[in-house]
Design a protein around this nucleic acid. Structure first.
Lengths: 282, 282
DNA sequence: ACCAAAAAAAAACATAGGTTTAGTTTGTGG
DNA sequence: CCACAAACTAAACCTATGTTTTTTTTTGGT
């Protein structure tokens, strides 16, 4: 078990603020934000990996008002017991959901990548049942909860897309229960790396050269129900056997087919259809 | 790992059929069904443990049309890959969700009790990503998927209640990841037994005398990521130390406080508020 | 480019839980 | 009420992963 001294962790949101934008006429927003394009584009892309939207739906999403903030690594976004009323979309960087046992052991129960919404799991419940933290430095677009609900109600396809996203998250939780409960360390780690490959690729953040994995081995351990020491052994075994190649924190897959096999990986649970057909999807 | 020979398992739905009831005027349905009262009452009770509904909502739910079927133990209700279009509510008996690894190890990812709907996790996705089976002999009320969707759309409180039920299920998945990933066998099993206590009590199926647990030790093992042999060791340890008492398959808790402590059990993740305050909720 | 701190790697040793096999009890259908 | 199968209990042994400690490498701030 790997005990995190809670006191030593950074506390709640400190991050640079920007003014609230009520993103107006299409194609006018570029001037307001850091990145060269609307940060909500990735949210749109995410929704479209699971559902079909028409042009009006797309414009409606891109026109949502938001506040952009940059948060330092390990900043809490939601704390267990909170009553969340906003909705944060990850624009860049990574985040994770986490629960602690009574004696301080941490289990990461989900890892989020750009384009994903961090609050749907809590938004409709009275109090949060787990913590959400940034993993790396991250930019978040905060959308007022009621704006999103309004949109979900007025445009059925968007409401449906949000529901599907929620259900896909639930599907991933189930696969994690299986992964942690029934696979040995080697396939377990391999499985997680495959999941990241597919999800990142769907968001345009991974290709045949693999992807940048910004997690420490300790964080991987906490995602897998293992020890940092054993994750280290296991990651080196995966590398030694040629299932993965590493360069700094970039992971790539010399032979995806073999990788998928050790990982016992079947992408069905990710429900990636509406567009797609990338390097990893076969 | 505990390998289930798939070929030996019973296949899809065989069970006694009854005609479709379009349950009409309130209080007229009793004549049609086995039990002395509307089987949808438990669904209503379930929804009301997480959300508030008014009298009209209640009547609307009890007036839903359904077909009642009795299924034998281990009957498949949904199979991975299916495109489900009905919605089954568990009226009596137990059911579970399950996934298999490539080499046949089984992980139970959820256990369902009377009043719970078995298909919300799959209904809005194109294909099921896991299997759902009865655990015991069970009565199911099949509600046409579109009837429920119609109701969810026309009555916001019901739509919200369904969404909350889904989110609570997701919350339970997260707790299971934590349980399997970070608790040792003793607290892990204890935690599961506590969860059942609370959930069954909320449905009126457990009291200070505990509850009937119809799971074999093998099924418990598959829910906990353990071996049947070790579940046996552990259950006897819980009994030996006085955390639980057993009589046949009835489990009771001589000292709930101590039980909750070994289990590291905090009921927050079950989101049981709107009514409640039973023997276990303190 | 340098330094401190964090992360990764390595090695030796410990243990919770897995495996195998066998005996006993309980439940169920005839 | 009997017989058979399923479930449970038991015990001996094994191994994947945990623990602890030390060393090396990488990272990030100035």
């Amino acid at each position: 078990m790997c005990v995190i001294p809670i006191a030593s962790l950074p506390t709640t949101m400190g991050g640079s603020d920007r003014e609230m934008l009520h993103a107006p006429a299409p194609n006018a927003w570029e001037t307001f934000v850091t990145s060269t394009s609307n940060p909500l584009k990735l949210l749109l892309r995410k929704l479209e990996t699971h559902s079909r939207l028409d042009e009006e739906d797309r414009q409606a999403i891109l026109a949502l008002p938001y506040t952009l903030k940059t948060l330092e690594p390990q900043t809490y976004i939601v704390r267990e017991g909170d009553a969340p009323d906003i909705c944060a979309v990850l624009v860049s960087g990574f985040a994770y959901r986490q629960k602690l046992t009574g004696d301080g052991a941490r289990q990461i129960v989900a890892v989020h990548i750009p384009g994903e919404c961090l609050d749907w799991q809590n938004l409709f419940l009275d109090e949060a049942d787990h913590n959400v933290q940034t993993l790396t430095r991250a930019e978040l677009a905060f959308i007022p909860g009621n704006e999103l609900q309004k949109l979900a109600r007025s445009r059925a396809a968007i409401g449906h897309a949000i529901l599907v996203s929620l259900l896909v998250e639930a599907s991933i939780f189930r696969e994690w229960v299986l992964n942690v409960g029934r696979r040995d360390a080697l396939s377990r780690l391999a499985h997680l790396l495959c999941e990241f490959a597919l999800r990142l690729e769907a968001q345009g953040l991974a290709d045949e050269n693999g992807y940048e994995l910004p997690m420490t081995q300790e964080q991987l351990a906490d995602s897998l129900g293992l020890t940092p020491v054993h994750v280290n052994r296991t990651i080196m075994a995966l590398e030694g056997k040629g299932f993965i190649a590493r360069d700094k924190r970039r992971i790539s897959f010399p032979d995806w087919r073999r990788m998928r096999d050790v990982a016992d990986f079947n992408q069905r649970y990710l429900h990636l259809e509406p567009q797609e057909a990338g390097s990893f999807s076969h």
